[in-house]
Each structure stands twice: as C-alpha cells, then as structure tokens.
Design a protein around this nucleic acid. Structure first.
Length: 156
DNA sequence: GCCAACGTTGGC
DNA sequence: GCCAACGTTGGC
C-alpha cells in the first residue's frame, strides 16, 4: 500500500534562490542541493517522497515567511555538488562511492499572494507547535503535520 | 549588523 | 565521551 502524502517546510534565502527563481526554472523544477546538515540530510535521503507537499520558506529576508508551495518530484539521490571542487557546496570528505549528502528535485506549484510572514504564523493557534515558529529553529528541512499544512493552505 | 541558539570540531 | 571553542544560521 502506498504511503500517504507527507508535508515539509524547506528554507531558502531568496537572495540565493527564491520562489520566483523556482517558478522561472526549467520545467519549474530545481535540484534542492547544498544541504549540509545531517538531520536535514536524513529527511532528504529517507523520507521525502514523490508527491509530498513543500512549503517554500524565505529566510534571512524582509519579510521572512512562507512564499509558496512546491511538490517533490524526485526522491533522494546523491548531491553531486559535494564532489565538485568548484562548487561552493564541495565537501572533500564526501566519498562518491558512499555519498554523504543527498538532494531531491522540487517543482513549483504556486506562489502566495503575499508572503505568509513568520509573525502571522505565530498568531495562529493551530500552528503553536509548528517547528518553524519555535525559537532557535534552524533546521532547513522540517516536517509539517497534516493539520498544520491544511491550516496554512487556507492562508495562500 | 547584532547576537542568541544551535551544530560541529577537536583536544584531552 | 566530554565539553570548550568555534562557525553558522537566521530573526530582529
């Protein structure tokens, strides 16, 4: 039996890669690469499945918050930037025969009318326990519960 | 630009 | 295996 759909929040600094960059990408799809954190890596490698919903989150920008929706279109496979000495994401310790880092492919679904700010998320009782609203929440790939996802879908 | 919170590294 | 020092993230 097929596993039911899961939901995720993925952070990106829009100065590096924004929701508009995703929309204007070829096939509206990008490699979600450069993740160099083990917990986030585990999600990419083991848990993100084709069809899973993604909240595209803009960090380190004014305003910070959810900028759009995307969908996982390819499951975890080795992040090739780790093996490229010219890449900013190069990791000399990563062995191509036993890759450390993984990426997925993510496709644009829609952009929010306006960014759903972190401040606004914090004002919604149903999202009180959501990971991204917690203080010091640095994980760049976070699981989102089904109720959280559906509450946020109403805000687009 | 500041700095709190967090993750990683490395000496012991 | 502990933990201090260091580097990074990310909200403000």
């Amino acid at each position: 039996m097929a596993k039911s759909k899961s939901f995720w929040l993925m952070k990106s600094e829009p100065s590096v890669f924004s929701i508009d960059d995703l929309k204007s990408s070829k096939n509206r799809t990008t490699y979600w690469e450069g993740v160099r954190n083990y917990q986030a890596r585990n999600f990419l490698r083991d848990h993100l499945k084709v069809g899973d919903g993604v909240l595209f989150y803009h960090s380190n920008e004014d305003p910070v918050g959810i900028a759009g929706e995307a969908v996982v279109v390819k499951e975890g496979y080795p992040d090739l930037t780790a093996f490229d000495p010219k890449s900013t994401y190069f990791d000399p310790k990563s062995d191509p025969r036993k890759p450390t880092w993984f990426r997925v492919d993510v496709k644009f679904v829609r952009k929010c009318g306006e960014v759903i700010t972190l401040k606004r998320l914090r004002e919604i009782p149903a999202l009180k326990k959501m990971m991204v609203v917690q203080k010091g929440s640095r994980l760049s790939i976070q699981p989102v519960t089904s109720p959280e996802w559906h509450a946020i879908m109403k805000l687009f």
